[in-house]
Design a binder for these strands. Structure first.
Lengths: 330, 330
DNA sequence: TTGTATGCGTTATCAG
DNA sequence: CTGATAACGCATACAA
């Protein structure tokens, strides 16, 4: 018995038609208990399991979700992938991991996903041009969702952390702690999520009379870029003119900044410079860094996404509230 | 035009048969230049692209590789996933990310992968019982590979870093540096890779007269477990009896240990305690930790794996040499 | 309750 | 070089 058993094989062996065999595997179909047992027994014996490929071809439902990722430098992505994969599998779906990079852009990924008939495409925190998404919206193609970023496209639902609420809470906390001269470290430019956070950060400080916030542009979301950016700033800025608290666009940047401030410049944290991160990375919260960070409600976000994927809730953009974890860095 | 265009649609529009349409998309097939151009033009116009699902059903080749992961606590996995996904995509394949956990064990993953007709299953550093793999070896089912772990099963090729060579090099380096009292921090038990490293670590020290090596069992591969293990050891062991160098089973453990030693116990690294990691995680090499670490040759490993997947080389276990990066922690 | 015809969109093979 | 027939393995609709 070399090749895989098919429904036909089971039918022959069981002395039934292959359609009856099929019925044994579709819940709630009209089949006698006797036949079902017979079929299942023979199937077990032959090691038969329905071929999902063939099934999908007919039903147009593959249970596959393409997950597009372009930034693998952020360990937080791994935690997100873990949760997302688990959540999909709990609903009989599975994640197709698609690496977006120089040799494989969004357009190609969309096309490929479409050819594979995936049920949906999830952009997991990838940078994208809105017009490149336009093409993905072909009628009949897979639905597109943006996770952990805000989409400005009206037809593409995004599931993200409420930047306004989070920044309101962060600034409130910082003001209460007595900080007065905030700075903002940005990562990759042109990412809507970053822009949103920066915008609201500025907005809420403005309500406290702070009109000008130095931007430390790291240019990318990795430790080294963050280190370089802060190093540059601290080297160029006399101590008395420096910011007293640095809001970082994410935890990776915050960790890089934390290290440079403390190890290279001997600054005490938070006395000389307070630091705030964003995401809620596991390691950021450890005593090693003790980073105050706004945790994205990733469990809720993924639950919301899956609900939309399964059609249990309407597919529209949602902003979910996260939680500020105050630690020793502020 | 709501539904997706099929070859039939293109054929009708182009005034050719659907088989000729097909030929235009299969390289090196017998078709006149005239027809090919005509077909491609019409296809472009209708937005037709071959349905890979239907193709796979017939060819038995899906181009999908199930990648099983059970440990998402290690950021190194993310870098590995990135490289693996990119390498697969460069060969017209794609990774199906499968989360192995309490609710989804290897057996279920194997079955599901089989039902989806994936071309191969890759165990990415997952812990497994050899007998659970046995079931996966059904004739006709997808090929199984183990990446970054050693498989003891003769029929399952594993692509891994040469534990013996690496430990030989590490111990040689440590001896040259003058260290004399090594310790070993292990992670999850019963993982062949860990056992291999530990075994060879002991073996090469034995050649230098060291017969007993304290084992600090973290029990899992995460920062906290490493911290707890070293904290326990340092609390229980008087300074003069302590090890002078700690070999950690991977970088995550090493980072956790580094932090506890330095921050909680005020030990100077490497003067009071040297630390060695394993993997070659990006962050481990940064000044923040400056960890001496043995880098797995992940690029080579993945290249070897892909060669096997594509049938360009025989599928058999290989041990690849990595590279020791000496930094300030030793 | 069970069996039959038909279709999903391709590809392999063969006839012309 | 092109068109036609069969098959991949399953699911839906309908008939018995």
């Amino acid at each position: 018995m070399n090749r895989r058993a098919t429904a036909e094989d089971v039918a022959t062996e069981a002395g039934l038609s292959r359609w009856t065999v099929n019925r044994a595997f579709v819940p709630g179909s009209n089949i006698s208990e006797r036949s079902r047992e017979r079929v299942l027994a023979v199937a077990e014996h032959l090691g038969y399991h329905p071929n999902l490929l063939a099934r999908s071809l007919h039903t147009k439902v593959t249970g596959q979700v393409a997950v597009l990722v372009d930034d693998f430098a952020n360990p937080y992505k791994l935690a997100t992938l873990e949760k997302l994969a688990a959540a999909l599998q709990a609903e009989e779906m599975v994640a197709m991991l698609v690496h977006i990079g120089q040799h494989y852009d969004h357009a190609r990924a969309f096309l490929h996903a479409d050819q594979r008939q995936v049920d949906a495409i999830v952009l997991l925190g990838t940078g994208f041009q809105d017009d490149s998404l336009q093409q993905a919206l072909r009628v009949g193609g897979p639905a597109v969702y943006v996770l952990a970023r805000e989409s400005t496209h009206p037809d593409i639902p995004s599931i993200s952390c409420d930047a306004s609420a989070s920044m309101a809470e962060i600034v409130k906390h910082l003001v209460a702690r007595g900080y007065q001269r905030p700075g903002y470290m940005s990562g990759a430019r042109a990412l809507s999520s970053g822009l949103g956070r920066q915008k609201y950060h500025a907005k809420y400080w403005r309500q406290h009379g702070v009109r000008k916030i130095p931007e430390l542009a790291a240019g990318a979301y990795d430790y080294r870029s963050a280190e370089a950016a802060l190093r540059r700033y601290l080297s160029e800025t006399p101590a008395e003119q420096r910011i007293d608290v640095l809001m970082c666009e994410n935890d990776v940047l915050a960790i890089g900044a934390h290290d440079v401030a403390q190890r290279e410049f001997g600054l005490r944290i938070p006395e000389d410079l307070a630091i705030v991160g964003y995401d809620g990375m596991d390691i950021a919260g450890m005593p090693m860094f003790g980073l105050t960070s706004y945790a994205q409600p990733m469990d809720d976000m993924i639950a919301a996404l899956v609900d939309m994927l399964k059609g249990r809730s309407a597919s529209r953009s949602v902003l979910l509230p996260g939680q500020l974890a105050v630690r020793k860095s502020t």
